[in-house]
Amino acid sequence: MTLTTVVEPSSPVEALPEILTRVVAELHDVAYLIERIEPQLLELGGGAALLNSPESMKVMQGIDLAVQKTRGLAEFIDNITNEISHDWTVDVATALSLVKLSEMQRALRGSIHPAHSQPLAKAAGDFDFF
C-alpha cells in the first residue's frame, strides 16, 4: 500500500501591519482620484452653471466629503497600524482573490510599489480596456 501526501501550496501569510500599510496607500490613491473629478466637472459643466444648481452643489459637496472620508479612513488605519505587533500575521489569499482590479491586487499583494493608478502625465485620449 502506498500513501500519497498532498502538499498544498503555501498560503501568502504576511504581517498585518505591512498589509494595512498597503491598504492606506490605496486609500490615499482613491482620495487623489476622487479629488481630480471636481475640476473636471467644473470644466465640463461650466463653473457658474454647476455652482448655481442646488443639485450640482450637493454633488460637489459629496465629492469633497468622499475625499475627506477616504483620507480619514487612511489616517485611522495608519495610526492603528503603528500599535499592531509585526508578529500578527494573516493569510490574504482569499481577500486578494476577491479584488477585481489587477493593479490594485498587485499593490495589495506588495508586488508593485504604490503609485497613482492614473498619473497626471497620461495623455488625453489614452484609455485602458477592461
Rank of each mutant, 00 (worst) to 15 (best):
R36C: 09
P39M: 01
R106S: 14
L96V: 02
P39W: 03
D128F: 05
L3M: 12
L108F: 05
W88Q: 09
A115L: 06
V99Y: 07
R36S: 15
I19P: 03
E35S: 14
T81V: 04
L3Q: 10
V90Y: 08
D91W: 02
D128G: 12
V7R: 13
P114G: 04
D87T: 10
T21D: 07
T21V: 09
I37N: 07
F130N: 14
V67A: 03
L41P: 10
F130I: 14
R109W: 02
I84T: 04
F130L: 12
A25W: 02
L41W: 02
S56Q: 07
V13C: 06
Q61F: 09
N79P: 00
M104I: 05
K122N: 13
A31Q: 00
G45V: 00
L27A: 04
V13F: 00
V90Q: 03
H113W: 04
N52F: 04
T5P: 06
E103S: 15
P119K: 08
E55M: 11
P39F: 01
A31G: 07
T4I: 15
P17D: 05
N52E: 08
L73N: 09
S111K: 08
T21C: 03
L20A: 04
V24M: 02
H116W: 05
G72D: 04
D78R: 14
G47C: 02
V6K: 13
F129W: 04
T2K: 10
A74I: 02
E103C: 06
E55H: 10
L44G: 08
R22N: 03
Y32C: 12
H28R: 15
L65D: 10
D78G: 14
A93I: 03
A93Q: 14
E18I: 09
L65K: 13
E43F: 08
L3V: 13
H113S: 15
N52Y: 01
A15N: 08
D87L: 11
F76A: 14
H116S: 15
L44I: 10
L98V: 07
E38N: 05
Q68P: 05
F76N: 10
I63V: 13
I63M: 03
P114H: 07
D64S: 11
V99C: 10
V6H: 10
H113D: 12
G47A: 07
A48F: 12
M57A: 11
L96R: 03
L3N: 14
S11F: 02
T89S: 08
D126L: 08
E26G: 14
F129T: 13
E18L: 12
I63W: 03
I63E: 01
H86I: 03
S102C: 04
D87S: 12
L51I: 11
P9A: 05
A66R: 07
V24T: 04
S97Q: 11
M60D: 05
E26A: 15
M57V: 15
K69E: 12
T2Y: 00
E75Q: 11
E83W: 00
D128A: 06
W88V: 15
D91P: 12
P12T: 12
A31F: 01
L96H: 01
I77W: 01
A107R: 15
M1I: 11
A107S: 15
D64P: 09
N52C: 08
D29W: 01
T21I: 08
E75L: 13
N82I: 15
I19G: 06
D91R: 09
D29L: 02
V6C: 02
E55Q: 12
T4R: 09
E35D: 14
